[in-house]
């Protein structure tokens, strides 16, 4: 069917009823149909990672999935990280370590790092660098992002 399809998406524990064409990507659906514009688009071809969200707990590029594929998945976006107005340790660590400048890449990095650390709470340095190399940042030069994720890893283990 090329016609719009009614879908129910589970995002950050809330269910969203949307009506989208099959060709609408998950990223566009989150942004334009669910109003969750924290997920950003920097390339729409899988390289920059600004669109990274968690699907069933794992970091994925939401520009490379279609919303129609995602019914029944547990999706998490940057909007779901803070709880009751309290920043997630990863958000807090990015703030404290100046891990962002323009902030455009930030949601993608946060989701990548949270998704990874939830599976691997105690990564070694080389591994961590390799994983964080999945996403691009044009402003920070990455140092402070690395510092932030290291700090958050320690905080999350606590």
């Amino acid at each position: 069917m090329t016609e719009p399809i009614d879908l129910t998406l589970d995002v950050n524990g809330r269910s969203y009823q949307v009506r989208v064409e099959p060709r609408r990507t998950l990223a566009d659906t989150l942004r334009d149909d669910c109003g969750l514009t924290g997920t950003h688009l920097g390339c729409e071809h899988g390289v920059c990672g600004a669109c990274t969200v968690l699907a069933d707990g794992l970091p994925v590029r939401s520009c490379l999935m279609f919303a129609v594929q995602c019914e029944g998945m547990e999706l998490r976006t940057v909007e779901g990280l803070a709880e009751d107005g309290r920043l997630h340790p990863m958000q807090q660590a990015f703030w404290e370590n100046h891990g962002l400048q323009c902030g455009f890449c930030t949601p993608g990095f946060l989701m990548l790092a949270v998704g990874y650390l939830e599976q691997h709470p105690d990564p070694d340095e080389e591994e961590l660098r390799a994983v964080l190399s999945s996403n691009l940042c044009r402003c920070t030069g990455y140092q402070n992002i690395l510092k932030a994720v290291r700090q958050a890893a320690a905080d999350m283990r606590r």
């Binding site: 794992l58 970091p59 994925v60 590029r61 999935m65 990548l112 994983v131 190399s133 999945s134 996403n135």
Partner: peptide, 12 residues
């Protein structure tokens, strides 16, 4: 496998 793209690419 470690050389195939990045983690999110390998997950999908």
């Amino acid at each position: 496998a470690r050389h195939v793209g990045h983690l999110p690419i390998r997950i999908r």
